[in-house]
């Protein structure tokens, strides 16, 4: 069973950051990973995927997009606050509504993620497995262009970093930083290289290019509409385009709340099965959404 729970480390984390002076590429990336992204989070996400074509200056779908609407709750924990517990529920489409996922991710390298799924038709919480951490994962998140690897924790030690250039992107001055996986990580990664455009003044990653194992460009990830929410930069709009299959996924954070009071108990299996507890807690938390 694939991983379903949302941890946007490659995509989201690298797009949402605030940090101070960066001395070199590795230091920039360290600050990206260790940035303050809030200790708790509630989001409602629209995920639309389709084959695309360019129409003038617009990129348009050439088929009816497949759309999911998800509601996710995250809370950080662990000794450094870098372990994550997340609950994700499917709100739409109606046929998948009621599916819930609970996931515990650990900062410690090599410690496997714990995952459970709840299908209302199945009527029980079931532990699921995500596969071997030492091999590249296949499959994608709800059939989108986001792979399970894209959602995994990004460890600083897994890559070597180089500043390739300084250039302007989206009218912002950027560092262009290349990340090459070390041999141990390259064995389990679908990517041979990642190039990020990092805004020098706002310290946001505005674009990433991901290269496949054959060294060809496979994905372009671009960020739009960054917002300062409770002092934390948060990107509302992420476009992931697959340059080989010509499919794209637009991930829109329709509603966001950061650093809100979430009880530890909400990030347990109880939330998957106890409808009264889940819905009453969410009703209270949704009041914080922006």
């Amino acid at each position: 069973m694939p991983r379903f729970v949302i941890l946007f480390f490659v995509i989201f984390v690298t797009f949402s950051t605030s940090f101070g002076f960066a001395e070199d590429a590795r230091e920039i990336m360290r600050n990206l990973i260790d940035r303050d992204d809030g200790t708790t989070e509630l989001t409602r996400i629209r995920l639309s995927t389709c084959r695309y074509k360019k129409e003038g200056k617009r990129v348009v779908c050439v088929e009816t997009p497949r759309t999911k609407i998800l509601e996710g709750v995250r809370k950080d924990w662990g000794p450094r606050g870098k372990d994550h517990k997340t609950i994700t529920m499917v709100l739409d489409p109606p046929g998948e509504r009621g599916i819930g996922f609970l996931q515990y991710d650990y900062e410690k390298w090599g410690k496997e993620t714990d995952q459970w799924i709840y299908l209302s038709a199945m009527g029980k919480v079931k532990r699921i497995i995500s596969g071997n951490e030492n091999e590249p994962k296949t499959g994608s998140f709800f059939g989108s262009e986001i792979s399970y690897e894209d959602m995994e924790a990004h460890h600083l030690e897994d890559y070597t970093y180089t500043i390739l250039a300084s250039e302007t992107y989206q009218k912002r001055p950027c560092w262009v930083i290349e990340s090459i996986p070390i041999p141990e990580h390259a064995r389990r990664s679908n990517y041979s290289k990642i190039v990020d455009w990092v805004d020098k003044e706002r310290f946001l990653v505005l674009k990433s290019i991901l290269y496949n194992r054959q060294g060809k460009k496979v994905k372009r990830v671009t960020a739009r509409k960054p917002e300062l929410i409770n002092g934390i930069w948060f990107v509302r709009y992420v476009l992931i385009s697959n340059l080989i299959t010509r499919r794209m996924t637009v991930m829109i954070f329709e509603a966001v709340a950061l650093n809100i009071p979430i009880e530890d108990e909400f990030l347990t299996q109880r939330t998957l099965t106890d409808g009264a507890f889940r819905e009453s807690t969410l009703k209270r938390l949704r009041l914080y959404l922006k």
């Binding site: 639309s48 348009v60 609407i69 709100l91 262009v176 190039v195 674009k207 460009k217 476009l239 385009s241």
Partner: peptide, 21 residues
């Protein structure tokens, strides 16, 4: 160049299916 298809996604006016809650 570092990203030779840069122009393609310059315009953020991307049309996707809209289905509101």
């Amino acid at each position: 160049p570092l990203d030779d298809e840069e122009a393609e996604f310059e315009a953020p006016d991307i049309v996707v299916g809209q289905r509101d809650i």
